[in-house]
Write a protein that binds this DNA or RNA. Structure first.
Lengths: 217, 217
DNA sequence: GTAAAAATTTAGACGAGTCTAAAAAATTTT
DNA sequence: AAAATTTTTTAGACTCGTCTAAATTTTTAC
């Protein structure tokens, strides 16, 4: 139905717009897609003709209903495959993203629904991200990133950014996985690094890392 | 490493050459690839530059060692995925070919070896075709197609053509699966249809069908 | 509120893979 | 063995997704 490239654009627009909430600018998209702004402009025109996005010259792009629904199907596939790789093939959570980026483009509704069933209809993937259902319904939790939490507050890790293997290996070592509870002890005003309590141990995270850890409070 | 298209050409050349045994002509390849002879010529030149084939103008093409090895890797992936779909996701054998055509192009040696392990290192796929090992070694049985067998001879079905869902549904209904023993009762000289004994039942196959059933005798 | 800077789009080009139409080489027929 | 036929290749063009360079629009700075 759609090309790999088109699917990747839709997915990137979905993520950058915070779930089709706000417009996405050409340069943001160019950076996310590792390409040039001129190429993005060309592609946005094509997606607009196919009614997958609303595109206004110089003012960025928004997903249409059709575009959002397509993006969610791709995200569903990505997260189900990640779950399969970890649960069934015993991949570690830092290894799955790259392979899932390929698997998410396989065209077969039957395959993905059978896979969903085989995995027991999981609600979230190994990084804690929610898996959209067959109809594209997504159960989004109200999440806060760790860099925004005040000292004294407690929360449970709900998800972590899934596409940086080095970060994931580091968090694995520390034990900072979805489901773990933590408490913010203090924040250093100089560099905004943060000290937390996790499994009764004191742990320090740089601001950079803390931005990639999402919690429910 | 190689594009989808290149991989599909290598696979087609492998099959049409009977496992890199003989040269493949431009028109055969054009028919197999559902494309035009001119396009095939263009692609063969590119594959020759990459040293995947030896191509001689007007005289067809042969796989090089490198090309054969690449083709076998793709066939390995195709057959492992078919096995996965049937064994784990309970697809029927007529549904798997089309999806495996997509899955065979996923690039991840780690994935395919983990999948192999997860499936218990199967020796053949659901249609009876042998699965090459990690190093591309293929255990090829000496097979005869049913249309070449004389009345009175017995054999065991070793494989059936995997890419025609209608044929596969028909054979499923009849019970003609790999592993089943059969005996040729008679052949009608008029249309070369054949009468066989399968599970103590008499069954008739047209020549067309009998060409697609391979046996070990 | 105009000038400089930044962001975006347009114009023209390229490589991959495909096509049609025409030319060239091989094969078959007579 | 020359003519007719078939097969294959060449030439030139098209689409897709990309690029660079130049032009345009928006935003920021003064």
């Amino acid at each position: 139905m759609f090309s790999f490239t088109e699917e990747n654009y839709l997915k990137a627009i979905y993520h950058l717009s915070g779930g089709a909430q706000k417009s996405v600018l050409t340069n943001e998209l160019a950076e996310a897609m590792q390409t040039k702004a001129a190429s993005v402009t060309d592609m946005l025109k094509k997606l607009a003709v196919k009614e997958l996005v609303q595109y206004e010259r110089y003012y960025g792009v928004n997903l249409t209903g059709k575009g959002k629904s397509e993006a969610l199907q791709i995200i569903r596939k990505h997260r189900l495959w990640e779950t399969f790789l970890v649960e069934k093939l015993s991949f570690t959570w830092d290894e799955v993203h790259e392979v899932a980026e390929q698997l998410e483009h396989i065209q077969s509704p039957r395959l993905i629904n059978k896979l969903d069933e085989y995995l027991g209809f999981p609600k979230s993937d190994p990084h804690g991200d929610p898996i959209p259902d067959q109809h594209g319904k997504l159960k989004a939790l109200p999440q806060v990133s760790l860099d925004q939490l005040k000292p004294g507050s407690k929360g449970t890790i709900s998800s972590v950014k899934d596409d940086d293997p080095e970060l994931l290996k580091y968090l694995e070592k520390i034990g900072a996985k979805p489901g773990k509870k933590l408490e913010v002890v203090s924040r250093e005003s100089y560099d905004e690094s943060v000290e937390i309590l996790l499994d009764k141990r004191k742990v320090f995270f740089s601001k950079e890392v803390s931005k990639n850890i999402l919690l429910v409070i």
